[in-house]
Design a protein around this nucleic acid. Structure first.
Lengths: 120, 120
DNA sequence: CAGAATCCAGCTCGATACTG
DNA sequence: CAGTATCGAGCTGGATTCTG
């Protein structure tokens, strides 16, 4: 068996997964869906600035990875419900940690940015 | 004061930070530098596939956020040493969690991908 | 060694129009 | 409502050349 998985290697599958789930939109979508299942336009409304096309692509990618499910409700008008799966559970805890970290670090980072930009 | 920070808002500074640090390269660079400080080409060699330009950009961005420091050693040949700061400490624990998650989830995700692609 | 600068191919993404 | 399809502007990022 291989010694240790190396996320720095180009063909490392883990590195690929990390880059997929750690995309800005993917994280926001997962985080939002974790509160409660939601329909397409509901998601689009909350996540400001995402286009319909990009949202669709991200939802497909997350569904493909099995991190969310897509349920078509035969109502009128039709509703498609997205929700996170148990596979995403641990990932969601990590995303929450990241959100909390960013919220408590935001001040110092903004300050660092200003200092850096001044020096130039 | 504002009720709750809303990472889903377009102008949310936290959302901006998340998207910066959660970029694939940023995470890999931070993770690598956490093992030990490293020089430019050393980083470039380990992180396969990153170009000089993109690595430079990412290092600048991380330095600007105060997550890494850049120390110029007046040796010959010159060496520039990058290392993570204390501000990045908690973030690095999160990144490690993400690495571990991806490594233990990789099998099921690859399987999910195959299933998804078959159905189409 | 550690970049800066330039050029440009290719991909991303938003806008728009259309469908079941 | 929840998409698909298409098209073009613009940004990303690789390759190359050059510098202190």
């Amino acid at each position: 068996m291989p010694p240790q998985p190396n996320v720095f290697a180009k063909q490392c599958p883990s590195r690929e997964i990390i880059s997929r789930v750690s995309s800005k939109w993917a994280m926001l979508i997962l985080s939002l869906l974790n509160d409660s299942p939601k329909g397409f336009n509901e998601i689009k409304k909350v996540i400001e600035g995402i286009s319909q096309k990009v949202l669709t692509e991200n939802l497909r990618s997350l569904e493909r990875d099995g991190l969310i499910t897509r349920k078509i409700c035969q109502t009128r008008p039709i509703r498609v419900e997205y929700k996170t799966t148990y596979i995403a559970k641990d990932l969601l805890m990590i995303i929450e940690s990241l959100k909390k970290w960013s919220e408590r670090s935001i001040k110092i980072i903004v300050k660092n940015n200003k200092l850096f930009d001044m020096r130039k």
